[in-house]
Computed example of a mutant assay.
Amino acid sequence: MKINNKKVVIVGAGAVGSTYAHNLVVDDLADEIAIINTNKSKASANSLDLLHALPYLNAAPKNIYAADYSDVSDADIVVVSANAPSATFGKNPGRLQLLENNVEMIRDITRKTMDAGFDGIFLVASNPVDVLAQVVAEVSGLPKHRVIGTGTLLETSRMRQIVAEKLQINPKSIHGYVLAEHGKSSFAAWSNVTVGAIPLTTWLKKYPNPEFPTFDKIDQEIREVGLDIFMQKGNTSYGIAASLARLTRAIFRNESVILPVSAYLTGEYGQSDLYTGSPAIIDRTGVRAVLELELSQEEQEKFKASTVLLKENFDSIKEKCTL
């Protein structure tokens, strides 16, 4: 795929889409930013607001505008961040319960995008992201490596931040990944987490820290903190928008960087035919390769349990994934 103008189309001008658009401008990642929203006047207002920021930013001039699906034909990346109005958390909060409300909207967005002649890369942030990334892949008919969910990018960032705070180390020096579902069955692969090049388990033995929580406690915090943020401010936006921006940079700059995304498995971890969170090499083609970590027995069991849950949820809406 040849990238010339670095054009991004954002479907959904809510908190996530708007914050992501701002990141694209501030980080100078895209030349053309087209915003599609059911309320087109909001998309237009966001576009003008972003344009008015440009004179004071260290960024090149950009074409930013409210768009229609006719504008996606020459896009390099289409980012799906929209959620149906009815897709809200109920008494039993969980991303998977959003599936029934969001699936038809995501199918419709995908169909309209493909009907317009799109031939680039989809980035999916709408929840439940693993299942909806698979919906986009099935409905679009694009090669699976060109449909990428944000997966556990955000959980991994949270893990690095939490560990860094406890150790008083820069989070950029914490390396490792949270795997599996973007949701209640996610877990950090602690057997692979390092501080610099030192395994975290070795670090904690060498530098005892009585205040360091158990790994189970950190996993729980990672899974619950997003809902805590949501309940207090009505959305989570900065972290997920930064995750989308990181993916965009990796694609446009052909970085071949390893990021934990929702990618399509074809035998990795003994699993196939589903999207879930795993480290993958990201370059201008999308997912160049999915990487398989060596997991402990306990981690393998957690991964398998998560995939069972995701497969059940995809199977429940599979008939809606035909063009």
Rank of each mutant, 00 (worst) to 15 (best):
A250S: 15
D216N: 12
F215W: 06
D219T: 10
F187Y: 12
G270H: 04
V193K: 01
S185F: 13
A188F: 06
T266W: 00
F252E: 09
D216W: 02
M231H: 09
L247N: 04
L204T: 06
Y207R: 00
A241S: 15
G267F: 11
P213C: 11
D219R: 06
G196M: 07
I229K: 01
V261M: 06
I222V: 15
R246P: 02
K184S: 11
P213M: 14
K172I: 03
Y238N: 14
E221F: 12
Y269A: 10
A180S: 15
L179R: 04
T266E: 15
G239C: 05
V195G: 00
K172P: 00
T201L: 05
Y269G: 11
N235D: 14
G234D: 13
P210C: 07
N192V: 06
I258H: 02
P260A: 03
I218S: 03
S173Y: 12
I174D: 01
S272T: 11
T248A: 07
D228G: 10
T236F: 14
P210K: 10
S186E: 07
I251D: 03
T201H: 12
W203C: 02
G239R: 00
S173M: 08
L200C: 07
K233M: 14
P208K: 02
S243W: 02
I222F: 09
G176M: 10
I198N: 03
L200K: 01
T214D: 11
